[in-house]
Amino acid sequence: MQAVKMVITGPFSAGKTQFIGSISEIDVVSTERKISSSAEKVKDATTVAMDFGRITVGDDLVLYLFGTPGQRRFDFMWDILSQGMLGFVVMVDSTKPETFREAKRVLETFESYAATPYVVAANKQDMEDAWEPEDLRIILRLRPEVKILPCVATDKETVKNVLLELLYSILEEIDKVEKAR
């Protein structure tokens, strides 16, 4: 049995849990505790809110989806997750410009950890206040080859599209490496 994984990361409340929930065949296993206040309060850096979802491909292959917060203090988790990871998705709440700086930081941190391809999901595009993906591309200073995709985490089709685009990027990367040989 081969297991591969993808990581869904991004600022608090970007829609990571929802994203995994929309596509996972099991109910999302979430270690996240309900937090009463609006801000995220994780006092103990060793307890990490993490989601876990699964998509079975066949008897011999399964894809795991991990949702993990992007904050610095979870760096040690990232270390664990990035090993053997296929690729990752950075989720951004397109309606919350106050989180874009954080998203950029997450993106840059995680990019430095793993040489795997990633895509950015401009989430909550169903809301009126959502920034357009191409405006986000500029604000987040994405390189041209990094895809930014419109997403509504509650809509399975857009979630599928994000994962597929990530997989296409991974395929391109593999082909590039093979060609170089």
């Binding site: 081969q2 591969v4 596509i23 998509i55 491909v57 066949g58 292959l61 894809l63 296929l86 599928k160 994962l163 597929l164 997989l167 296409y168 991974i170 395929l171 593999i174 082909d175 490496v177 093979e178």
Partner: peptide, 15 residues
């Protein structure tokens, strides 16, 4: 790194 065939299978499955 994962093999190309694995990625292709994932694509088919998610589609």
């Amino acid at each position: 790194a994962v093999k190309r065939s694995v990625v292709v299978r994932l694509i088919d499955r998610i589609r």
